[in-house]
Amino acid sequence: MTNEQLIAHLTSAYPDANVKQGNQYPEITVSHDKAHALMVHLKSDASLAFDYLVCESGVDYPAFIQVVYHLESTMHRHFIVVKTNTENRETATLETVSDIWPTAEFHECEIYDLLGVTFNNHPGLRRYFLDDTWGHPLRKDFKDDIHVVER
């Protein structure tokens, strides 16, 4: 599908999601409680068939933490960006998508480590890069008194 068709299709299929054309790819923003169901559908719907999770990243915003999924369909070769926000920053929690795309298991561990987003139903959430003495460095309010010198 072309981007326009994709947007049209998604808008009709998910009325409660916010679908728009981003800088490069169609973007779809959903609330955290509907995200998992949406993504199950994105993969299982034969006309969409987003079977390849390219990239899963977390972005820290003042009010919430956004998790961004870059999805591609290896069958139809279309690309989509799915965004979902946590409810708040303090108890940032999301549903895991590792049951849909196994590779998400590892990307989610990274997000958990660096941004402190807890993923529910994750098979083995652990910190990959840092040990427990660290906070979550990719959060904007992260202060490292030892390694970072403020000028």
Partner: peptide, 20 residues
């Protein structure tokens, strides 16, 4: 302002840069 994603093929596979 916005988000940009660029993919290239490195010797090991797909490398992506996601800039917000």
């Amino acid at each position: 302002e916005g988000e940009f994603y660029q993919r290239v093929e490195t010797a090991r596979g797909e490398f992506g840069v996601y800039i917000v």
